[in-house]
């Protein structure tokens, strides 16, 4: 039980992928215009991260390591992530077209989203995960859990960001600052706020 809490705290707060480690910023800025699409993107990324960890962890530990072909790791991981994203894209197109249009070009970009690949690489790194979670040995359960909560950390950051941006959009800002620049400045403040977690 203690590990679970540790996973939640470390994945969502201490090593939050977006705001502490600055991975996956493209969709984080691109889709956080309104709360609904931000939540949609967050959940999609969480889903991709969880499934990715579910698939890549066993592939790495059961197939790649025994055969000693670790260099293939990046290619296989990205291929799997891309396949999952492609499936999600079709599912979204069918079940919620509005969310599909809101995400637009940023949906395929989940594939190259550094956070997803980041979590896949982090989870297979035995030494670091043990250090991070204080557990004796790494197994599939922890990997998927960490992926899930890393995704939720991403969702938390993007929803907070979209809330901030919606309020800021109503303020009379200088014309060139509208849109992305003001989003960046909000992200700058969020980064400072989360900075305190990194100090723990």
């Amino acid at each position: 039980m203690a590990e679970l809490i540790l996973i939640i705290v470390s994945a969502v707060f201490i090593n939050n992928f977006v705001v502490v480690q600055f991975l996956g910023i493209c969709p984080f800025l691109g889709v956080s215009k309104d709360m609904k699409s931000a939540l949609g993107m967050g959940l999609a990324v969480t889903f991709v991260m969880a499934i990715t960890c579910l698939i890549t962890y066993p592939i790495y530990t059961l197939i790649l390591v025994p055969l000693g072909i670790e260099f293939l790791e990046i290619i296989v991981f990205i291929f799997i992530i891309a396949a999952i994203v492609q499936m999600i894209e079709m599912a979204l197109k069918k079940f919620s077209p509005t969310l599909y249009n809101a995400m637009g070009i940023y949906l395929p970009l989940i594939t190259t989203n550094c956070a997803v690949l980041g979590v896949a690489e982090l989870v297979i790194d035995e030494a670091q995960m043990i250090g991070l979670l204080g557990i004796t040995s790494m197994n599939l359960g922890y990997a998927v859990l960490y992926g899930l909560f890393a995704g939720l950390g991403f969702t938390l950051a993007i929803v907070v960001m979209s809330g901030l941006r919606e309020r800021v959009a109503k303020l009379p800002i200088a014309k060139p600052l509208k849109g992305f620049p003001i989003a960046m400045i909000c992200a700058c403040f969020i980064a400072m706020a989360f900075y305190v977690f990194a100090l723990i």
């Binding site: 600055f22 200088a174 014309k175 060139p176 600052l177 849109g179 992305f180 620049p181 003001i182 989003a183 960046m184 400045i185 992200a187 700058c188 403040f189 980064a191 400072m192 900075y195």
Partner: peptide
């Protein structure tokens, strides 16, 4: 620092949009 990176990036985009407009 990384927060500074965000800030610089924001200023760059703002200036770029201004000139382009």
């Amino acid at each position: 620092s990384s927060a500074g990176a965000f800030f610089t990036y924001a200023i760059f985009i703002a200036i770029f949009c201004l000139i382009e407009n």
